[in-house]
Computed example of a mutant assay.
Amino acid sequence: MDGWTGHVMKKTSRKTTTTSFTISMQAEAMPLVQTLQLTEEDEPSVFPKAVPWKKYSGTHEGLSVHVVVPGKDFNLGVDSVGTVPVSMLTYASIVSLHPDLIINAGTAGGFQSKGAAIGDVFVATQFANHDRRIPVPVFDEYGIGTLGATPIPNLVKALALKEGKMSTGNSLDMTPEDEEIIKANDATIKDMEGAAVAYVADLFTVPLIALKAVTDIVDGSKPTVEEFLENMSTAAAALSAMVPRVLKYVSGKKIADL
């Protein structure tokens, strides 16, 4: 039995009324929050008091929309990026908000050899990891953790979105070992959270769409950090322009019809 049979199909055959966006960085989230005119949650929070997570909520195109971010690290004051914070946040969001659809929106590195350019918005067709190296039979496959994405061919066609496989790791840079596995994953885009969100969504059989705007060209000539910082606002703007179109399309539709 694959991931699109049985009780999973029940979730794809009901209309979409609630969406939850999981976004890692505040700078990625705020342009979207402003575009959708969402407001930050007042007390009491649906999340535990001990965590820095934030939630912005409202309605758009007849949908109940939530944007959740891991917030700032208490000790260092930087965004809580990486797979651990985002997997915890995704779990808590599913339990608390009961979304019909999760959208992991954010930025990513792209491979120009696969057709990626700065500002392109991609839909992930597959998720895998490239920094969980476990050279033991079967555990090696578990480490890669390949998961298929929710099929959305009609949405992709209607909005002329680019598609590509995603590879996730906890580092912004890329070691030779990472590069080898990323190539084996046949990835077009490289990020720091997508596969973790996909893992939790798969556990709870919640449909997931990953929208990633390209900030840097991984196989280009510019240093990754320099290009990432230079193009963050461009990528965030591209996401903010695309997301309302995505929400308009999915509103009231069954996931199976996307």
Rank of each mutant, 00 (worst) to 15 (best):
D2C: 07
S20Q: 14
F21M: 12
T22R: 05
M25V: 05
E28A: 00
A29G: 02
L32M: 09
L36G: 01
T39Q: 11
T39I: 05
E40N: 09
E41A: 12
P44F: 07
K49N: 11
K54V: 10
K54C: 14
K55E: 09
H60A: 09
L63D: 07
L63Y: 01
S64F: 05
S64A: 15
S64R: 03
V65E: 11
H66R: 14
V67M: 06
V67T: 07
V68P: 00
V68A: 04
P70M: 08
K72S: 01
F74V: 14
L76C: 12
G77S: 01
P85W: 04
V86L: 11
S87H: 02
M88N: 11
I94M: 09
V95G: 01
V95L: 09
V95R: 05
S96V: 09
L97G: 03
L97A: 12
P99N: 01
A108W: 04
F111N: 00
Q112L: 00
S113I: 09
K114Q: 12
A124H: 06
Q126W: 02
F127A: 04
H130W: 13
D131E: 05
I134H: 03
I134E: 03
I134P: 05
V136C: 14
V136F: 14
P137F: 10
V138C: 04
V138K: 10
I144T: 04
P151G: 02
L155A: 05
L161Q: 12
L161I: 09
T168P: 06
N170T: 13
S171D: 06
M174E: 06
E177P: 05
E180A: 13
E180N: 15
A184M: 06
A187E: 02
K190H: 07
D191H: 02
M192D: 01
E193W: 07
G194P: 02
A201L: 07
D202F: 14
F204L: 12
V206R: 09
P207E: 02
L211Y: 02
K212W: 13
K212P: 06
K212V: 08
A213W: 11
A213D: 09
A213S: 09
I217Q: 15
S221A: 14
T224H: 14
E227A: 10
L229A: 13
M232D: 05
M232Q: 11
S233A: 14
S233K: 15
T234Q: 15
L239S: 01
S240K: 01
S240G: 04
P244Q: 05
V250G: 02
V250Y: 02
G252W: 00
K254M: 03
I255C: 00
